[in-house]
């Protein structure tokens, strides 16, 4: 009885669904603002640094070099093409970690604006995800450069990369909506997520091969949505070995699930945010 009522309060009512759809239209109405916010983000980030956009390329390269020196020496990983494996992991993880932890703050840091003028608030996390996505796309340049140097062939699966970018953005946006909404109510969400992110990073096969995980701990891997994303990403850019179709279905499912969950969560609380900002 009690559980039933609890479930009812979690599931959105018809009215809330309608409201959620209307909010999507509002978001579309402000598309010019969305473009301006994304370009502002990118401009501000790179205008004042001497190397500008080069940083997007250099940052994962440096990280890869350091991690390569640490891990290849330490563990003697027997992974084939470890450089490509490592770099693809870093690039994807950077996108996910950066986009979610930056957009988590987007309601709080734009509170000045949100308190003074009507806007569809989701536009703030969305624009952060979008600019992180642009960076993600640019950081594919060093990846392919390394491929060129090491003689790795990306293969024909690469045509699915744009789809993958959309899936990754959708997934991150769902997480971001949930985090940024929670952040308004509980300011320690930030610290909790930081710790969570650290643990998450180590349970995702970014710099170690999947094979080092003992069989009875494999379930941790399978519970981790990012594992599927990363596997698909690597399949697309260089490994070509996993079951592509199944992976695309799983990742699409995860993205849609994350987005719709986050969107409904945000819509349920969006009118109350203003009182806590």
């Amino acid at each position: 009885m009690n559980g039933c009522a609890g479930l009812k309060s979690i599931l959105p009512s018809g009215k809330q669904m309608g409201e959620s759809v209307r909010e999507l239209k509002e978001l579309a109405r402000y598309q010019d603002l969305f473009k301006n916010l994304v370009s502002r983000d990118l401009k501000v980030r790179y205008r004042r640094s001497v190397l500008g956009f080069l940083w997007v390329i250099l940052n994962p390269l440096f990280m890869m070099i350091i991690l390569y020196m640490v891990f290849s020496g330490l563990f003697h990983f027997t992974t084939e093409n470890y450089v490509a494996y490592l770099l693809s992991g870093i690039i994807f993880w950077n996108f996910y970690a950066q986009s979610t932890s930056t957009s988590m703050l987007s309601f709080v840091s734009n509170s000045d604006l949100i308190r003074k003028i009507y806007l569809p608030k989701a536009i703030f996390p969305l624009s952060v995800i979008a600019s992180a996505l642009v960076n993600f796309a640019f950081s594919l340049i060093p990846l392919f450069a390394v491929f060129l140097l090491t003689g790795t062939h990306p293969g024909s699966y690469v045509v699915f990369l744009p789809l993958f970018l959309i899936q990754a953005a959708l997934f991150s946006f769902g997480v971001a909506l949930m985090l940024s909404t929670l952040m308004v109510f509980f300011r320690d969400t930030q610290y909790i997520y930081e710790v969570l992110l650290l643990g998450w990073m180590y349970t995702t096969p970014i710099f170690y091969p999947e094979s080092i995980i003992p069989h009875h701990f494999k379930f941790i891997l399978y519970l981790n949505p990012l594992y599927y994303f990363l596997t698909l990403f690597r399949t697309l850019v260089f490994t070509h070995d996993a079951a592509l179709a199944a992976n695309i279905v799983i990742v699409t499912g995860l993205s849609v699930l994350s987005f719709s969950g986050g969107w409904l969560f945000y819509n349920r609380y969006k009118d109350r945010l203003i009182f806590h900002l």
């Binding site: 502002r40 401009k43 501000v44 205008r47 004042r48 000045d112 604006l113 003074k116 003028i117």
Partner: peptide
């Protein structure tokens, strides 16, 4: 709204 000074402005732009 004639919003208050600077709200919505970005100082780097």
């Amino acid at each position: 709204p004639l919003i208050e000074l600077g709200a919505g402005f970005d100082f780097e732009l």
